[in-house]
């Protein structure tokens, strides 16, 4: 039991962060390298002003017509993204770990808030799951991997909540929580989860095309 715990928080944690950071750098570099060789057009037309203009519109809730005609998805996806990004950074249990291991610490979320945010992520995942099963167009696009990724994303939140509230078997659950978090990190560079890093570039490029060449809005 203890061995598992030490493995999960020790070597495996290092591996997870290495794979996440190293893998992301590798993926970025190979795309950049390919783009330089084959899509020089992207660099020619990329325009900071128009790229930012587009990115900003798409980061503001209801900033695009697409978001306006999909209001439920917009509300859910914004809450989901804010929570999935901030919760792990500021949840008390995590900050404590940083404090213990590296002696650095920062602001932590009040318990009730952390709980609420965790709950939002889990509920959002259920909503995404519902969409994937019920909406014909989303269903048509869904692959088995999409379900797996959704599960990988929800798992650290479900288990984190479990551990925090010390439901039965929370000792085992702690280990599962840690492993699931690590799996999620490692999945990022190699799955569609990489969208978090590519967003500024895909949006920025289409924004530059629309702004600089097409002289039209793209939101």
């Amino acid at each position: 039991m203890h061995d598992f715990y030490y493995f999960a928080t020790g070597p495996f944690a290092w591996i997870a962060f290495l794979v996440f950071i190293g893998g992301s750098i590798w993926r970025f570099r190979s795309l950049l390298e390919l783009a330089k060789r084959k899509d020089s057009i992207v660099f020619e037309y990329m325009d900071t002003k128009f790229a930012l203009r587009s990115i900003v519109h798409w980061l503001i809730p209801f900033g695009s017509r697409s978001m306006k005609i999909n209001p439920t998805m917009t509300v859910v996806t914004f809450l989901f993204h804010i929570c999935i990004f901030l919760t792990p950074l500021f949840v008390f249990g995590h900050v404590i770990l940083w404090k213990e291991n590296f002696n650095i610490s920062w602001f932590t979320l009040p318990n009730a808030v952390a709980d609420l945010m965790t709950f939002i992520v889990i509920a959002s995942c259920i909503f995404f799951l519902w969409r994937r099963i019920k909406l014909p167009d989303v269903k048509y696009l869904t692959t088995p991997l999409d379900f797996i990724i959704l599960f990988i994303v929800a798992a650290p939140f479900i288990t984190g909540f479990w551990v925090y509230h010390q439901f039965s078997g929370f000792a085992v659950m702690t280990i599962i929580h840690i492993i699931s978090g690590e799996i999620m990190l490692m999945a990022i560079p190699f799955t569609k989860l990489f969208h978090m890093f590519l967003f500024p570039f895909t949006r920025g490029y289409i924004g530059s095309e629309f702004g600089g060449v097409r002289m039209a809005k793209d939101w």
Binding site: A35, D39, V42, V138, L141, K192, H195, T202
Partner: peptide, 19 residues
């Protein structure tokens, strides 16, 4: 090159484009 790859791989299969 990268554009095609990114367009196909980044797609999160969310269906926002349908409408």
């Amino acid at each position: 090159g990268a554009r095609l790859k990114v367009y196909v791989d980044t797609c999160v299969h969310c269906g926002m484009c349908s409408k």
